[in-house]
Structure formats: C-alpha cells, structure tokens
Amino acid sequence: MKDIANMAAFLGAGFAVGLGAIGSGWGIGNAVVGAARGMAKQPSRNFALFRSMLINQAFGSNASIFALVIGILLWLKGGSKLDAPDSLAQAAAYLSAGLSIGIGALGSGIGSGLVAQDSLEAIARCPKAESRVSLMMFIAQAWCQTPCVFAFVVSILLMYVVGNNFNVLTDEQNIVAAGRALGMGICMGAGAIGPAIGIAFVGAKACQGATNSPEHLQNIRNSFFVGAAVSESTTVYALVISLLMMGGFAD
C-alpha cells in the first residue's frame, strides 16, 4: 500500500468540509428566518435586526470556518511528501482529524441557528430589551461554539502530534494505533453534536425569558449558566476520553 496516508488526508479534507457545511448552512439560514419574522413584526427596527442578523450569521459560520481550516491543512498534507506515506496509523490519524471537526461542526451550526432565531424574534418583540437580549445572545452563541472548539483542538492534535509518531511502529502496533486515532476523532466529533444543541436550547430560551420577564433577569441568567455548564459537561467527557486515548501515543 503506497501513499495511503496521502489518500487519507484528502479523504479527511473532504469529510471535514463536506460534513462541516451541513450544520452551518442550516444555522445561517435560520438566522435569516428569525430576522425576516422580526422585520415583519417591527418594520421600524429594520436596521437593528439586520445588524444583529449579520452577527448571528458570523457565529453560525464559525463552525464551518474551523472545518475549512482543517480541510485546507489536510489538503496541503495530502499534496505534500510525507515521512511515512504507507503507515496505516498515520492515515487513520488524518482521516480521523477530518471526521472529528466535520461531525463536531454539525451541532454548533444547528445550535447557533436556534439561538439566532429566538434572539432575533425576541429583539423584534420588545425593542427596549435589545441590550439585555444581545448580551445573552452573545454569551449563548459563544458557548454553543465550545464543543466545536474542542473538536478543533482534537483535530489539530491528531494532525500534528498523533500523525507524526508512526515511523517506528511494527504491523501489530500500527493496527492498534490506527484504531486509537480513529476512536479519538469519532469520540470527540460525535460527542460535540448533542451538547452544542443542548446549550443552544438553553441560551435561546434564556433570550426569550430576558424579554418576557426582565424582573427575573438575575434568576434567568443564573439558571442559564448552570444549565449550560451541566449540558456542556458531556462534551468535556468526550474531550477527556479523546485526550486519554492520545496519552498512549506518548510512549
């Protein structure tokens, strides 16, 4: 098997950008849905809604930008001359780097769309509450990108730490290391989908709550923080397990 690692790098690039575009596309479209509904309700707030929509779309594309970066880096790897082009484990690391960020971007994109829709409708419903809702929206958007950031970290580690240690492996070690690398990527990628959507649900409802009952703002914010932190914990488990699996590569 010649050049299997180059093949896997190209394959990983395809997975990263292809899968990574799904969620972001949905999320960016949903921001426009929210803005359009809001403009229909409050035509006088046209400009504020448009500005807010652009910011929401920037957050929505955040996940796919990460996927695009990993895709480009993998594409450069695939086209270049590698140290161990016929190592199965290195091939698995590159494929897994693409899968990790590709699957991991799915949830963050969808979640960002949920927050965008609810916060834009909330701004339209109660223009006085704009500053409160925008603050909550910023935190919710940034927070639901966290799982995707973890997936990005794991992808970078897979490409540059795990992917460089396979020159001296025997065949048996090669198979085990390949499974380990693939496991790392799939664990982090799949573990990032659900928590991102969960955090986004919490954030979206907190944005609505901040408009509907401003007198309970402190309570809403506290339960938002606690709820989002607890639903984030599952993605932290995925990160911990991925890093533990990486620990085997050190020796």
Binding site: I65, F66, L68, V69, I72, E232, V240
Partner: peptide, 25 residues
Amino acid sequence: VVGKIAEIVSISFRLFGNIFGGVVI
C-alpha cells in the same frame, strides 16, 4: 475541576482558531 480547566481551553482556542483560520484561508 474539569469544567474550570475547560473554560480556559475553550476561551483561548476559540480566539486562536478564528484568527489563525483567517490567516490560513
């Protein structure tokens, strides 16, 4: 404890990833 460490990891890698991504693209 893991949550407190994750705070630092997520805040720093978010900024790094976006800016580094812009440079690469």
